[in-house]
C-alpha cells in the first residue's frame, strides 16, 4: 500500500473531505464548466479577476478524491496571484503529475500542490488531478466549457 499513501496523502484526503472555496459564486466574472468524459465528472470554476490579478476563485461539482482535492488546493494557491503566475503554476503542476516516476523535479513555487507528486505513478488519474486546472485555464480564456480530452 506504499504507493497508495503516496497518492492519497493526508493533505489530499483532508481537502477531498473538506474542500475549501467549494461554493457557487453568483457574482463571478468568469465561469467555466469542465468535463472529464472518461468518468463523467463535472466541475465548475468561478473566477474574479481584477487588473490582471485573481481576487477570488471557487469551484463546485462532484468528483473523486484526487479531483476534489486538486480543485480545492488550486483555489487556495491562486488567490492573489496574477493571471500570468496562475498559468505558470498550471505548467509546473502539469509537469509534476505527468513526469516519468523518479524523474520529478518539485518546484518550490508549487507549495502544497507538491502533494500531487504521487499522481505520476497512476497515469489513469492524471486527468482527475488536472480537471480543475483545465477548467481554470478555460475560464481565464473566457471559454465556458472544456474537457480533459
Amino acid at each position: 500500500m506504499s504507493d497508495l499513501r503516496e497518492l492519497y496523502q493526508e493533505v489530499i484526503i483532508d481537502h477531498s473531505k473538506r474542500p475549501r472555496n467549494f461554493h457557487v459564486m453568483p457574482d463571478a466574472k468568469q465561469i467555466s464548466v469542465g468535463h472529464n468524459p472518461l468518468c463523467g465528472d463535472k466541475m465548475t470554476v468561478f473566477l474574479k479577476v481584477d487588473d490582471g490579478r485573481i481576487t477570488d476563485v471557487s469551484f463546485d461539482g462532484t468528483g473523486c478524491a484526487i479531483s476534489m482535492a486538486s480543485a480545492s488546493l488550486m483555489t487556495e494557491s491562486l488567490k492573489g496571484k496574477s493571471v500570468a503566475e496562475a498559468v505558470q503554476l498550471f505548467g509546473m503542476f502539469h509537469e509534476l503529475v505527468t513526469s516519468e516516476p523518479g524523474q520529478i523535479k518539485i518546484a518550490e513555487a508549487l507549495g502544497k500542490l507538491a502533494a500531487f507528486a504521487g499522481v505520476c505513478e497512476f497515469p489513469i488519474r492524471v486527468k482527475c488531478a488536472s480537471l480543475a486546472w483545465h477548467t481554470l485555464r478555460a475560464a481565464l480564456e473566457g471559454k465556458q466549457e472544456t474537457t480533459t480530452e
Binding site: L4, L7, K17, C39, G40, G63, A65, I66, I124, R125
Partner: peptide, 29 residues
C-alpha cells in the same frame, strides 16, 4: 464518502480488477 474511481485505484493496488465509472450508461447513472 468514497468516489468509485478512488475505490478502483485502491483495489487495483491489491491486484483486483473492477470497473469504476459510468459504464457507458450515463442515463442509468
Amino acid at each position: 464518502g468514497v468516489h468509485p474511481h478512488d475505490i478502483g485505484t485502491i483495489v487495483d493496488q491489491e491486484a483486483i480488477a473492477i470497473r469504476a465509472g459510468h459504464h457507458c450508461a450515463q442515463p442509468t447513472m
